[in-house]
Computed example of a mutant assay.
Amino acid sequence: MRTGLLLIGVMLWGCQERLPPAGDKIPVEADAALQQAPVWELYSLDPDVELDEEDPETFHGWKVLGSVEIKDKSTRQKLLDSLRASVAANPGVVAACFSPRHGIRLKQNGEQHDFVICFQCYHIRWYPHDKPESAFNPTDSPADAFNSVLQQAKVPLPAQPK
């Protein structure tokens, strides 16, 4: 029994995210960029199609199903508030998987910030300057708000987790 539990623990450890979680808040620089950017581009990603991360047709290696620019400040604020609340509410849970269905790209002060988001696995990878910087852990609660914005713009959604 102990050997089986040890083996499972080792397997799960190997599947953990390479970047350490930032804690119970969105990293300060990431939060500032999300708050201050005049436009977000919200992506719908196919979590089942991981491609070459260097391919410019992908979003950090994930197939893009579509995207929409979010210029409305109140919509951006609503999504950011839901992200902040979900990160604060996460008690440190993160799954070993990574099946992102959402992404955000924004430009702030001449710098690009990308967020690859997997609400199902409670994990967001943050890429400032196109390099992985950090990761943080939301809950799945913002998924419906993000999907609603995409649906209103007639952007296709991937299959949803069961």
Rank of each mutant, 00 (worst) to 15 (best):
Q36I: 04
Q36M: 14
A37R: 09
A37E: 06
A37D: 05
P38M: 09
W40E: 05
E41V: 13
L42T: 00
L42Q: 00
L45M: 11
P47T: 06
D48T: 15
D48K: 12
D48Y: 13
E50S: 11
L51F: 10
D52P: 06
E53H: 04
E53G: 08
P56C: 13
P56I: 15
P56K: 13
P56Y: 14
E57P: 07
E57F: 01
E57M: 11
T58W: 11
T58S: 15
T58M: 09
F59V: 07
H60W: 05
H60D: 07
G61K: 11
W62T: 05
W62L: 07
W62E: 08
W62Q: 08
K63S: 14
K63Y: 08
K63F: 04
V64I: 15
L65T: 10
G66I: 14
S67D: 06
S67T: 12
S67R: 10
E69K: 15
E69N: 10
E69L: 13
E69D: 11
I70M: 01
K71V: 02
D72V: 12
D72K: 12
D72C: 04
K73W: 08
K73R: 15
K73C: 03
R76I: 05
Q77L: 02
Q77H: 00
Q77M: 06
K78W: 06
L79H: 10
L79R: 06
L80T: 07
L80E: 03
L80P: 06
L80N: 05
L80R: 15
D81R: 00
S82W: 00
L83F: 04
L83G: 03
L83P: 06
R84T: 05
R84Q: 14
V87A: 00
A88V: 03
A89C: 05
A89F: 01
A89H: 01
A89D: 08
A89T: 04
N90T: 11
G92I: 01
G92W: 08
V93D: 03
V94T: 15
V94Q: 11
V94A: 14
V94K: 07
V94R: 15
V94E: 15
A95L: 14
A95K: 13
C97Q: 01
F98A: 04
S99T: 15
S99I: 07
P100L: 09
P100V: 00
H102K: 05
I104G: 02
R105D: 04
L106F: 04
K107L: 00
N109W: 10
G110T: 10
E111S: 14
Q112S: 09
H113M: 03
H113L: 12
D114T: 10
D114M: 14
D114P: 05
V116G: 01
V116M: 11
V116L: 12
C118H: 02
C118R: 04
C118L: 06
F119H: 11
F119L: 02
